[in-house]
Design a protein around this nucleic acid. Sequence first.
DNA 1: TTGAAAGCGCTAACAG
DNA 2: CTGTTAGCGCTTTCAA
Lengths: 350, 350
Amino acid sequence: MATLKDVAALAGVSTATVSLALNGGPVNAKTRQLVLKAAKQLHYVPNRIGQMLTTGRSNMIGLIILTGSEFPDIVRKTSLFYYLMEGVLAVADKEGFGVSFAVKSHDDPLLPQYFAEIIGSGTIDGIAVIPQFAREYRFTNLLQEANYPYVLLRPSRFGIDANHVDMGNFEGGKMVAELLVDSGARRIGIINGPSSHVDAIERERGFGEALLDRGGMIVARQYGEFTIESGHAAMRKIAERGLPEAVFCGNDYMAAGALRFLRSIGANCPKDIAIVGYDNNDVAIATDPQLTTVDNRFFDLGYIMADEVIGLIRGNTSHVARVVLPEMKLRESHLFGRSSANAQPTSASA
Amino acid sequence: MATLKDVAALAGVSTATVSLALNGGPVNAKTRQLVLKAAKQLHYVPNRIGQMLTTGRSNMIGLIILTGSEFPDIVRKTSLFYYLMEGVLAVADKEGFGVSFAVKSHDDPLLPQYFAEIIGSGTIDGIAVIPQFAREYRFTNLLQEANYPYVLLRPSRFGIDANHVDMGNFEGGKMVAELLVDSGARRIGIINGPSSHVDAIERERGFGEALLDRGGMIVARQYGEFTIESGHAAMRKIAERGLPEAVFCGNDYMAAGALRFLRSIGANCPKDIAIVGYDNNDVAIATDPQLTTVDNRFFDLGYIMADEVIGLIRGNTSHVARVVLPEMKLRESHLFGRSSANAQPTSASA
DNA sequence: TTGAAAGCGCTAACAG
DNA sequence: CTGTTAGCGCTTTCAA
């Protein structure tokens, strides 16, 4: 590989001049041409390690997803994170950053160590972290104390001190309650995910509060594990005491399971009972009827997180606290009382 | 941040000794203790940039996904790539590598430039590349000539010269044909994806050959765009001339669309017609009946690609040519002639 | 077993 | 506008 020195030698100038010429510094136009020609001739590509060492910057941001071993099936859900990654990538590309990606277990005792290495190693200028469980993490202190650029994906109410982007699970739950009440349902059930999952907690809280406000009531409550089978089983349990007018499911998998159970007993959704899911996962367009659900806007979330991390790196910002509100994805399954099975499918695009 | 020098000063030894002590070199046990203590006291973390510069290695591998603008909906499918990433990550973690991730458009004219920079910049020791379209790419020559460690995900028959891992789409198509014939179907249709998509081509080729061998025949052929709607439309077209006994769909989205159309005309799958999808996407477990489909083993694919890239980096290998055979995922939709709708859902796990 | 010193490739301060 | 020089943090000869 050709180095700066080689280019300098060929062009007959100093390395400093080459650096200047290549980076738009104040150089005579003729000299620049000379340098450019030499660089091209040698297929010169700047060694970024050298640049990093002198500038102290790597132009890399990290995306770190924290996963757990308690609920392996949740992992499947995380293919949604791909969209988050694409959002991160979109900003990174635009701003000239690379993206380093890692998945760590949130119960790994070496986690603080891992973050300490990120802070000290110099290979990553800042990070976006996606914790999935509602615990206090020691590493946030590390990051904070080191004044290291980071942004967490987590609810605002979990302490406003840490840099965070809130994905609006509370608001999402609220939107579902409002939609269902507006659709004419009053006696409503909920099938939620594990209560240790931070998203599940927030969704239920928002749902419950808004339902109360609007004059609806929760007449059944079950907890599943974010899987189709657990949604199926939960719906069966609920049905034992008679069908409510609507059921809010904590994610689309469980909603698909509920739908399947309903069909098996000959109940029609949404005519007899409305169902709403959460996440706008692929399953939501594959069921019949297609699921009305809440889109987390993962792409936007990734985009905004990365954008804020870069802002922090560049010193344009010093603190991050934002909310990205989810969006209702209206399809058919929420239309309580109306028969609309076998309608034309809506588009698969996000 | 504390540097080697700081540790050396505190321990009262030279930087060389510190380096040796920290990296398991030949150092007096007492001295090592001294150094370790000093390092801990200063919360010393080695600056990896410095290490990279001297060793010439970054201990980073890259995962590069090539995407296109022709079929935006295909992008949605790519959330499957998340599993591939997890496979890559699993190896990287195990071998002490970091992972850098990028998505590039395969029609970007700057693509060769991008690869040239990867080769020259020194930040990535090797790459796994996922092209999605059947073209000849100029960058492979670049990589080859530079003797840069790389592995492509692509069919073996596209030239055995390049390092590649074959995801076995040909074999997958074959497996589907065999399964359908074994299930009792003979007059079979196919709904495939765009013919420019490399996976689609291979699947159809394997399917067609095996079907011929087994005495089945293709009685209908439609092309969709890997979406639910296009699968729905394609099935409608096929139904106009009478239902075949089975239809192989090039991916699960189109299979879900086909299923939906069948239900709308009162046809029962799999009693009246068998359907098989491809990919083992989330949609495959959300439909009713659940889809029999082919699992690409993306995790394993990622795992093997990363493993091979690292082998190349370390000089343990000099050429890569492997096939990872897909796996049939038997559910209900292929059981031609048998009525099994509304069975218990099978597990959501992969 | 330890230390001194060179050098990886680059940028930036400074002098000219 | 251009060249000289120092130095980023580390590993690695080479000597002692």
